[in-house]
């Protein structure tokens, strides 16, 4: 698949779009309605910046070649994703407005910042996962969760996280609950927690593996656990929490969803495009360097994942007193 394009790609793509549209119209005149689906640009609302936005752009870029119409990753950030979800919810369910969603739909809902939940959206497909990782400085003596927990019983640890009520906060709370320790959560915005860890102001930080990667390679930081069921490809030597005897399996899934009521044939068309993109070697290669784990799931299974996760997140937030 020619995913490699050049500078005048936009113009070129417009040309091919017109040609493709004409061809599709000719081919489908009289045939099923579904054939007509991508007739205009698809807008993919992106809720956050950083590496997940880059992945969204890579996905959108590849999907436009798959679908034959431009797929634009449009950033609508703010309020922990609430703004973007509210926008996509308000759009007509035609499939031309989709959202790059994640567990954030559950965290914003249970924190009371929006009055609708995951059921407002039709799942399209899961694209992949990001697995939180717990890092400490390499000059510390903690190599395992056990050693960290033992040290944390003598001295209250400071742990750098993203904002309170964020998914990262929930994961760390679940992890330290299992470890049976009490820590001070220090919320940082804009992904500065790794810097604070390097600067020695926090004892550990729970963030995404890609944020630690450079410093792990340079032997400045050490990741002592990841919170998924399996190890992550970016940090293959790091054991999971489950391997270390603590039953925590919390990962952030990312995928696509459309407003409720989007026709099922349209969803199917989008789903197929995602399936092809995720299977492509180029997407896997880029994902690997960005610390993202491609893990395609079709719409129906994705829907079940979202639902079970939402229940778990709701319970956890209630436990932590974050649910409103």
């Amino acid at each position: 698949m020619a995913m490699l394009t050049d500078l005048n790609r936009a113009g070129w793509r417009r040309c091919t779009t017109v040609i493709a549209a004409v061809l599709v119209t000719i081919a489908s005149s009289g045939s099923a309605f579904a054939q007509q689906f991508p007739r205009q640009a698809v807008e993919m609302t992106v809720l956050f910046g950083g590496s997940s936005a880059t992945i969204a752009q890579v996905l959108a870029d590849a999907m436009s070649t798959e679908l034959g119409v431009p797929v634009a990753a449009v950033s609508r950030t703010g309020a922990g994703g609430a703004v973007g979800y509210a926008y996509v919810k308000s759009r007509r369910p035609t499939g031309y407005d989709i959202v790059w969603n994640s567990n954030s739909i559950s965290t914003v809902f249970h924190s009371g910042n929006i009055d609708f939940d995951y059921r407002t959206f039709e799942p399209v497909a899961r694209v992949g996962m990001e697995v939180p990782a717990l890092a400490v400085r390499a000059d510390s003596s903690w190599r395992t969760l056990d050693e960290f927990a033992a040290a944390a019983r003598t001295k209250r640890m400071r742990v750098g996280i993203s904002g309170r009520g964020s998914f990262i906060h929930l994961v760390s709370a679940a992890l330290f609950d299992k470890l049976g320790i009490d820590v001070i959560y220090v919320p940082y915005g804009q992904g500065t927690a790794p810097t604070e860890l390097l600067g020695g102001r926090v004892d550990a930080a729970l963030q995404w593996p890609s944020q630690f990667k450079a410093q792990v390679d340079a032997r400045q930081l050490r990741v002592i656990a990841v919170t998924g069921r399996d190890r992550v490809p970016v940090l293959p030597d790091v054991p999971t929490a489950i391997e270390q005897g603590y039953d925590v399996d919390m990962v952030m899934w990312r995928g696509l969803a459309a407003p409720m009521g989007t026709p099922s044939d349209v969803i199917a068309r989008l789903e197929t495009a995602v399936r092809r993109v995720v299977a492509s070697p180029r997407f896997r290669e880029v994902s690997a360097t960005l610390g993202f784990e491609p893990a395609f799931l079709p719409a129906s299974e994705f829907g079940r994942v979202i639902a079970t996760d939402d229940a778990a997140i709701g319970r956890l937030m209630a436990q932590l007193g974050l649910k409103r």
């Binding site: 936009a10 417009r14 640009a41 807008e43 634009a72």
Partner: peptide, 16 residues
Amino acid sequence: DALLGTPLPSGSWVVW
């Protein structure tokens, strides 16, 4: 729109 592909609002009353 043409050069950068950032969509400008198309209007919710208008059905293209």
